[in-house]
């Protein structure tokens, strides 16, 4: 009986979202969590928290998503959250050169808190759908990610829902829980049949990648 009482094994991973104001950190989380997009911008106050159980490769992990405020007055809070994070996602807006330039500062903060090795660093270029207003090319983003030694670089569009699941899939692949298995096979049925569990499989993964405007 006690065996059934203990529930399922669960490892928690803390993911912190960083970036300038209005780059789409909250939208990225909302798209991942609820698969929705809100046109109305509302600045995050302080630090927001959301958590989601992810089932993949016969393992269940709990992602704790810490959404930081981009506003200057909340900057002092952020290092305390980077301190014990496993993954840092630095988001910039492809239509804002300034937000791109600030990546260095954010990455510096991450490295100051977690060092070079203890964190999975992701650089995400958001608003990929606004191709007419683009100020930062994908090549620039890739180069920057290489220079900053980022584990993952990806361009997303939270409005179009492009590459968001893919981002979290890539992140999951880098987590210690899944490093042992060579291929991460996501069990569709298992994940869909469970409540409160997000399915991050992407049927059109290849399509998504090929449609990337790289």
């Amino acid at each position: 009986m006690s065996g059934s009482r203990t529930g399922k094994s669960l490892t928690k991973y803390k993911i912190v979202f960083l970036g300038e104001q209005g780059v789409g950190k909250t939208s990225l989380i909302t798209r991942f969590m609820y698969d929705t997009f809100d046109d109305h911008y509302q600045a995050t106050i302080g630090i927001d928290f959301l958590s989601k159980t992810m089932y993949l490769d016969d393992k269940t992990i709990r992602l704790q998503l810490w959404d930081t405020a981009g506003q200057e007055r909340f900057r002092s809070l952020i290092p305390s959250y980077i301190r014990d994070s496993h993954v840092a996602i630095v988001v910039y807006d492809v239509t804002s050169k300034k937000s791109f330039e600030y990546i260095d500062k954010w990455v510096e903060d991450v490295k100051a808190e977690r060092g070079e090795e203890n964190v999975v660093l992701c650089i995400v270029g958001n608003k990929n759908d606004l191709s007419d207003e683009r100020q930062v090319s994908t090549e620039e983003g890739e180069r920057k990610a290489q220079v900053l030694n980022a584990t993952i670089f990806i361009e997303t569009s939270t409005k179009a829902g492009f590459n968001v699941k893919n981002l979290f899939r890539k992140i999951a692949k880098t987590l210690p829980e899944f490093q042992k298995s060579d291929t991460v096979s996501l069990d569709d049925k298992a994940s869909k049949s469970k409540p409160d569990v997000i399915d991050i499989t992407t049927n059109n993964e290849d399509q998504e990648q090929s449609s990337c405007q790289c």
Binding site: T6, G7, L10, R62, K194
Partner: peptide, 21 residues
């Protein structure tokens, strides 16, 4: 049981339709 489970294996979770829950 739950608490000792936490101590030994870390945090546990229940699906919302779990029978024991």
């Amino acid at each position: 049981d739950l608490h000792s489970g936490f101590k030994t294996f870390g945090e546990r979770t229940f699906a919302s339709d779990d029978k024991s829950l």
